[in-house]
Design a binder for these strands. Structure first.
Lengths: 128, 128
DNA sequence: ATAATAATAGTAATTATTATTATATCCCTA
DNA sequence: TAGGGATATAATAATAATTACTATTATTAT
């Protein structure tokens, strides 16, 4: 890695993210990493989360509720946020890249991609 | 209006938003309203922006860059954000509500809607 | 092992936003 | 159109999320 060194804290963060289905906030990651490295600092967590996101190892989600969350799965996929409980879920759904062409039809710039956030009631909240 | 009174500041905010193609942040709205009401406070701007958004008079945008912006056009439409200069533009494109059904195919909850943000190079940045 | 350099912990600073409160404005009613 | 109750405001303080700073520690190439 050019100009980058191994760090056990960063490894722990990546490990944690890759094993959770949740889409934790930086603070939640912090709390969890602290159970392994009690002296880890919040700044370290923020720095590494952003670093991992830049490197494409994890995904940074700007959810429509304004909360920033992280996803250990960097592969393109779509997300759902429950308007009742706020939980964020992965959706099992094919990529729909043709909508980029639709968006580009009447647009002078260049469309390279998109992010979608679906909303509604999650399975749990849908019952009641 | 039930439990709500006229306010010239709120009117000015609505007026300003409905006449700009930009998608200003709360701070930008604040700066502009100040040229009309020099003593308006930032709290008033935030309160009214959120009030107008709740009432469906304007749209609150959580852009994928994490910046909160406001759109004077409350009708459903899609947005584009330039990955170079960060400008936010409206897209002239039909609604694609069928993607809600696609998302709901393998999902136990209920999909009610979606927000999409396209990204790429805006017309200006695409030239260079 | 040593030295160079990146990463860390701990803390301070910054930014965006919301809460508080005394005063001003709006608007219903007489 | 004057009085009074309710909402909105300006000004400020407080909070939350994130980034910056710095002395120390950990990693890695030699």
């Amino acid at each position: 890695m050019a100009g980058s060194k191994f760090s056990r804290q960063r490894e722990a963060i990546k490990e944690y993210l890759s094993h959770t289905k949740e889409h934790p906030t930086a603070d939640t990651v912090y709390t969890n990493i602290r159970s392994i490295y009690p002296h880890v600092s919040l700044g370290t967590v923020y720095r590494n989360l952003n670093l991992l996101a830049e490197q494409g190892e994890v995904m940074k989600l700007n959810c429509s509720d304004g909360v920033v969350r992280f996803d250990g799965n960097p592969e393109p996929h779509y997300h759902f946020i429950c308007s009742k409980c706020g939980s964020v879920l992965d959706l099992n759904m094919d990529s729909i890249d043709h909508i980029n062409d639709m968006a580009g039809k009447d647009f002078k710039g260049r469309i390279e991609g998109h992010t979608i956030i679906f909303h509604g009631n999650c399975p749990e909240c849908n019952i009641s």
